[in-house]
Write a protein that binds this DNA or RNA. Structure first.
Length: 210
DNA sequence: TCATTAACACGGG
DNA sequence: CCCGTGTTAATGA
């Protein structure tokens, strides 16, 4: 079983053997590429994703033409929105997009509910994940409430750099502006001033954090 | 005052 | 030429 081996490599000792077997039976392994939409607004969520490799960005969409990046998911994370949806048969209020390439395990929602009652390790995993998501959400709110655009831009760049395991951010000013729900003029100006401060170095299509 | 919009110039692929 | 970038002038909140 390929999935079983992956689980044993990625999450050793975390799940009971019985649970690992069950996951192996029902989970689907899915590769995604940058910009792939994994979950979109308004979709009814039928699977719960567990991230194995790569990073996924979670965007809030303003129904019209306004997007805002909430936070990134990394290895081992799962999506709190999905969990909330699972319990109520609700639609997704967010959009999940591949930031890098990577792999996710897709688990059908009714299985995930069954396992909550059956496996303590699953319960722990789900609630721990929920807590982590909640913390990240609060961080995002603090960031929005107490930081000006320059501070948000700095945080954003640091986050992206962390996810790409380096200090280079391969994005255009326009992409950054969209993810921060701002305009390119502002981002260009702020980036320029951050460059003067010595916080980063600007090049075409790549920003290097010092 | 500060963000947004439109417009333009420049340079690299 | 098209796109990413840097800048400015006008407008609005």
């Amino acid at each position: 079983m390929q999935i079983k081996e992956i689980l044993e490599n990625y999450y050793p000792e975390q799940f009971e053997p019985g649970l690992v077997d069950e996951i192996g039976d029902v989970a689907q392994l899915k590769h995604f590429q940058p910009q792939d939409i994994l979950i979109d607004m308004g979709e009814t969520v039928t699977v719960m994703p567990i991230l194995l490799d790569g990073a996924i960005k979670i965007m809030r969409d303003d129904y019209g033409e306004g997007e805002l990046l909430l936070y990134f998911l990394e290895k081992g994370d799962t999506c709190a929105m999905t969990m909330a949806c699972c319990l109520g048969d609700k639609q997704s209020n967010i959009r999940a997009i591949g930031e890098t390439e990577g792999r996710v395990l897709m688990i059908p929602v009714q299985k995930m509910e069954d396992w909550l009652a059956k496996y303590p390790s699953w319960r722990k995993y789900v609630f721990d994940s929920y807590n982590n998501r909640m913390d990240e959400m609060l961080e995002a709110i603090d960031n929005l409430a107490f930081n000006d655009m320059s501070g948000r831009l700095k945080n954003y760049l640091l986050n992206v750099a962390t996810i790409n395991k380096g200090n280079a951010v391969h994005k255009t000013h326009l992409e950054i502006a969209n993810e921060l729900n701002s305009s390119r003029v502002v981002i260009s100006r702020l980036l320029k001033s951050l460059e003067k401060e010595g916080f980063l170095v600007l090049n075409r299509n790549v920003i290097t954090i010092q």
